[in-house]
């Protein structure tokens, strides 16, 4: 976003949040509850369904199926160069539904049931004065 010298120099994003959460941005980690048996996204120290702390963090394969999607023109401070964006719900092969951005695809070719896989992409950027932050998005599985 164009702005004053001060505005562009100050980093908008927190390096420490990204650093601490890097495992959840570079992998898809799920919370498997050993009490109620439910599996949820992302990794948490307690089960979001029953509150139990008897949980195990498991890594998902990163493959899944698109169950719903929307083509978004909604503008926020982060979205100027990324319009439009596709936000979808992906049902992982492990059975858990997660919200995700869908990339590298023509919106017209999207359909429910499309096979998708996790790909590493840029999430946010404080360029040129700070870091570029990466994380997982989803794109169609190449045949």
């Amino acid at each position: 976003m164009a702005g004053s010298f001060e505005e562009v120099r100050i980093m908008k994003n927190s390096i420490s949040i990204f650093w601490r959460k890097r495992s959840d941005f570079y992998k898809i980690r799920l919370t498997k509850c050993l009490e109620c048996g439910k599996v949820s996204f992302p990794s948490r120290t307690k089960c979001p369904y029953c509150g139990s702390k008897n949980v195990r963090i498991v890594e998902a394969s990163g493959k899944g199926t698109l169950v719903n999607y929307t083509v978004s023109y909604y503008r926020t401070e982060d979205s100027d160069e990324l319009q439009p964006r596709i936000i979808g719900l992906v049902k992982l092969d492990e059975g858990v539904i997660i919200p995700a951005e869908i990339v590298d695809v023509d919106p017209d070719s999207l359909r429910k049931g499309l096979r998708v896989e996790a790909v590493l992409r840029r999430l946010k950027s404080d360029d040129p004065f700070g870091l570029i932050y990466y994380g997982l998005k989803f794109s169609p599985v190449l045949k």
Binding site: S72, S79, I87, P99, E101
Partner: peptide
Amino acid sequence: IRGIAPINY
């Protein structure tokens, strides 16, 4: 962080 807004849901 992943750019998902209430309007998308």
